[in-house]
């Protein structure tokens, strides 16, 4: 069974430093995740997420600041709505909605970042590889 491929979109002000902190603290977490920095989780468009699945990602994590704590005031409010709708669209298209997850990680939550990544990797590991789903 091939290892899962996961892409995480992390915002500059909370989640990316959070991931950085996990590294500074020498916390081990799943190596199957590659992080892409965006300025705000609100930048992650639905098209980008869908395209990520089409390019072969088994799971997509969108990580932003805690609700009400967004550096860009209300950027992540948009993300919440967008991801909720997108999960239903995925389900409709025959892709398990569990493959897309939105989580809040603040700049001080290195441990939380590692835990979320590990949990998500386990979830994805239990699913069929996306290549077979889309084939």
């Amino acid at each position: 069974m091939p290892e899962p491929k996961i892409v995480a979109y992390a915002c500059t002000y909370c989640s990316y430093p959070g991931a950085d902190l996990a590294g500074t603290l020498r916390i081990q977490y799943s190596p199957h995740v590659n992080i892409i920095r965006v300025l705000c989780s609100g930048r992650v468009s639905p098209e980008l997420i869908l395209r990520t699945f089409r390019e072969g990602a088994d799971g997509v994590l969108v990580l932003g600041c805690h609700y009400g704590d967004c550096h860009f005031v209300s950027g992540n409010h948009r993300t919440v709505k967008r991801v909720a709708v997108l999960r239903r669209i995925l389900e409709y298209a025959g892709i398990e909605p569990e493959r897309l997850r939105l989580e809040w990680v603040s700049a001080s939550e290195g441990e939380r970042f590692a835990r979320i990544v590990d949990e998500f990797t386990e979830t994805i590991r239990g699913l069929t590889p996306i290549e077979q789903v889309l084939a």
């Binding site: 290892e3 491929k5 996961i6 892409v7 199957h32 590659n34 892409i36 965006v38 300025l39 930048r43 468009s45 098209e47 980008l48 395209r51 990520t52 390019e55 072969g56 990602a57």
Partner: peptide
């Protein structure tokens, strides 16, 4: 953070994986 840049980054990330 254009679509092309993020797309290239994402494709690169998936290749690395």
């Amino acid at each position: 953070f254009t679509d092309e840049q993020l797309l290239a980054e994402m494709q690169g990330a998936l290749r690395v994986l």
